[in-house]
Design a protein around this nucleic acid. Structure first.
Length: 285
DNA sequence: AAGCTCTCCTGATGGC
DNA sequence: TGCCATCAGGAGAGCT
């Protein structure tokens, strides 16, 4: 499940293997993979041809490849199971290959978008003057962005009438955090996922943001989390952070701080993992 | 109007 | 063994 660290690993791979190459042609094998490109699969493919790829960028879980001299960029979201792979031309087609992009140079590799569950996708969009695709203007800066505004985030938490995990997953407040890193950061902060955001103090918010950044940087350093092998880098390799997870997926296992068995609770059509002793439920209002 | 629920999708897994 | 239910969950549409 790609979140910020995993998407950043992919971005770095694209920077190394795809940036500055010119598109020869593109092929859409499954229309759902480009459903956010309103003009359709043929238009998407044709508009890439002949254009050079700039330096890949990322905000939260979105990444994009600028198309030089067009004012547009290829926007990518990996969803649950999307992969951007740099493969030799002769590599057999993956079972869930959705889009293929070939280049004009003599390097023997092509870019492939592979996605089992098709929650992810590619699309082309105009970029705003700061280089951001216009359709993700509502996505907040992510916590590893030097321009992320900690004070504004704190004030937004105070203003909201919701709970902390919902807020962490709200991409318009803070981007790049998904279910795994939310649970990890909350465990590190000894916070229950249902703590009301309005109760946060400045030091409390600062501590939480510190843990969000720490856990994401630690994951980034080992290539991200590959919990179920659906996440891989552009060379098809898994990351190693799954073995460093303290909360996510650890139902029944001892808390690494206090040895109390960890719990899993159904939450928003997914799961929350937490230590019932370290992360006490807030008092009912 | 903010906050919350629902829906899209495929494959792995478990119960009977 | 086969069949059905459940689970994984990002993000935006839609509802209250």
């Amino acid at each position: 499940m790609p979140e910020l660290p995993e998407v950043e690993v992919v971005r770095r791979g694209l920077e190394r293997w795809v940036a500055h190459r010119t598109v020869a042609d593109a092929e859409v094998l499954h229309p759902r993979a480009v459903r956010r490109h309103i003009a359709g699969p043929d238009d998407f493919a044709h508009r890439l041809e002949g254009h050079r790829i700039g330096t890949p960028s990322r905000r939260g879980k979105y990444l994009w490849l600028p198309l030089e001299d067009t004012g547009q960029a290829i926007l990518a979201h990996l969803g649950m199971s999307g992969q951007l792979l740099v493969q030799p031309h002769e590599a057999p087609a993956e079972k869930h290959l959705r889009v293929r992009v070939r280049f004009t140079d003599a390097l023997s590799t092509e870019l492939r978008f592979v996605d089992q569950r098709t929650f992810g996708g590619l699309s082309l969009h105009d970029t705003t003057p700061d280089g951001l695709p216009d359709v993700i203007a509502h996505i907040a800066r992510d916590p590893l962005d030097p321009l992320f505004d900690d004070e504004a985030f704190h004030l937004a938490l105070r203003r909201k009438r919701t709970t902390i995990k919902r807020a962490l997953l709200d991409q318009s407040l803070i981007s790049g955090v998904g279910n795994i890193y939310a649970d990890e950061a909350l465990w590190r902060s000894r916070l229950h996922y249902e703590r009301p955001t309005a109760t946060f103090t400045r030091p409390g918010t600062a501590e939480l943001l510190g843990h969000v950044r720490d856990v994401m940087n630690a994951a980034l350093a080992v290539g991200g989390t590959s919990f179920d092998s659906l996440y891989v880098n552009v060379n098809g390799e898994s990351g190693y952070f799954d073995r460093s997870l303290d909360a996510y997926g650890r139902e029944g296992l001892p808390c690494r701080r206090c040895a109390t068995p960890m719990r899993r609770r159904p939450w928003m059509n997914r799961s929350s993992y937490f230590c019932p002793k370290c992360q006490r439920a807030p008092r009912p209002a």
